[in-house]
């Protein structure tokens, strides 16, 4: 039981870091969106593992919330990406840096 928890958390951590790295090095906005999804799911996995460890249902409930939020986020995100592409004719996120402070 202990081992499974540890392994699950390590897997979640690896997934999160992978998502983070690809978020940092990718310039294509669609890939960045996918990276965000990976990180979200890594966080969800950590919730599930923790819930299984303590035998509590809240972790699974939290993951459902994350799924719902992720669906909404993806739809808004894709709509924004479409708009960016319409405006800039590119998907390079560095090109969309006109709003400086």
């Amino acid at each position: 039981m202990m081992n499974t928890t540890m392994e699950g958390l390590v897997l979640a951590g690896i997934l999160f870091v992978l998502g983070l790295i690809s978020m940092l090095i990718r310039r294509n906005i669609i890939f960045m969106l996918i990276s965000v999804e990976i990180m979200l799911n890594a966080a969800g996995l950590a919730f599930i593992v923790a819930a299984a460890r303590w035998g509590q249902p809240e972790g699974q409930v939290m993951f459902m919330f994350i799924l719902a939020m992720a669906a909404a986020e993806v739809s808004v995100g894709l709509a924004l990406i479409l708009q960016i592409y319409h405006q800039l004719k590119t998907l390079d996120s560095d090109e969309a840096s006109k709003m400086r402070g």
Binding site: L20, M23, L24, R27, M32, S93, D94, A96, S97, K98, M99, R100, G101
Partner: peptide, 14 residues
């Protein structure tokens, strides 16, 4: 502070 507002998304993430 305003120099950090570069508009480059990946810097924000960083």
């Amino acid at each position: 502070m305003s120099a950090t507002q570069s508009g480059i998304l990946r810097w924000y993430v960083m």
